[in-house]
Amino acid sequence: MAVSVETISNLERRMTIKVPLAPLEGQIKQRLNQISRTAKFSGFRPGKAPLGLVNQHYGDQVRDEVYSKAVETSFGEAVEENKLRVAGYPNIEHKPFGEAAQDLEYIATFEVFPEIQLGDLSKVKIEKPTLEVSDADVEKTLDVLVKQRVSYEPVKRASKKRDRVNISLIASIDGKEVESTTDKGIDLVIGEPGRMAQFDEELIGGKAGATKTFEIVYPEDHNPAQLAGKTVSYQVTFNSVSQPVLPTVDADFAKNLGVDDGNVETMKAEIKVSLEQEVAKRIKARVKESVFNALVAETETEVPKAVLSAEISRLMQITAQNLQQRGMDP
């Protein structure tokens, strides 16, 4: 195999490769012999047709397969032999395989990854953040853990913020019903994120058994887009109202978090250790990002077009998936 490499630009290379046909002809003959054992032709028993007849019917196909495989294999060997780091896929050009005489010659044009030359980093300073976990941080985390384990008990009073209400709902646009709940209704915690604040405000003051109607005008940029700019009429029936009950931070609470002896101070100590590990992890990630940014800022390099195209395609695909998940046509 003969290989020559031409430098077109900083990143582009043109490689001319010649592969001897003799070994390939042997592969073609071997493949045709394999086909002849099972090929069926009129007037001949399976496996008894002359090789010339088999070649007449399958020769071009087999030759294309063998030559294509040879191109793939020889290109990989040539790249490895010349220690090239190929970026993306090569553009292969060759004459029709049937015109090959002594050698299978083709030209591969491709990009390579650049050699990175670091700039002057002597004046670059990387600051490592420091942060100590305080008792206040532990209490704040403990407060989150308590709220995550909230339970609810029914009450007879009117609903207020942070209560859980079970409601039956019918939503209409221009008099046409667009949404309704099941007979069991749905549970909502008043004031929780993810809904229009105005909707939750309308749920304040309702008692079990009461029915309320109201309208909400959704903004033009509302998500999901189906409600953007629409006026939606709601009929809400309150099935039940329940108030939140937060657990007491005691031995049972500590045991629920994995502290076998239920010692509250041990639980807080373990929370502090966990927070310290998380802080260390985040500081390490921030320092790593700072080092990376400094390297990028002090280093000039050319990015292969193939890499840019691949990244653009990846981002476009992610964007299209996000739009589809939001019910929009990309």
Rank of each mutant, 00 (worst) to 15 (best):
E72L: 12
K29Q: 14
V279N: 02
E115C: 00
N263Q: 08
V54I: 15
V79M: 13
M328I: 14
E153C: 02
E177C: 04
A320F: 05
F41A: 10
E72M: 09
L121D: 01
D64H: 14
V178Q: 09
E99G: 00
T7E: 15
V279K: 01
V178G: 06
S290F: 00
R149M: 11
I107F: 03
V291D: 01
V19A: 06
K160A: 12
L142D: 05
S309M: 10
D143T: 14
R162E: 12
V155F: 03
T73A: 14
I126R: 01
I190P: 06
L169Y: 01
S36I: 08
S9W: 02
K140F: 06
T181P: 08
P23G: 11
N223P: 01
A158W: 04
S168E: 07
K176D: 12
L188P: 00
G26Y: 07
T213P: 03
A251N: 06
S122E: 10
Q317I: 04
D163P: 00
N82Q: 12
A254K: 03
P129R: 00
Q27T: 12
A49C: 09
E80H: 13
V273G: 12
G185D: 10
V241I: 14
K123P: 00
Y89P: 00
D261G: 12
L323A: 15
K212E: 13
E25G: 07
V5C: 05
L295M: 11
E300K: 13
D183M: 02
E111N: 04
E289L: 04
A100P: 07
N322D: 15
D137M: 11
T38R: 14
H57A: 15
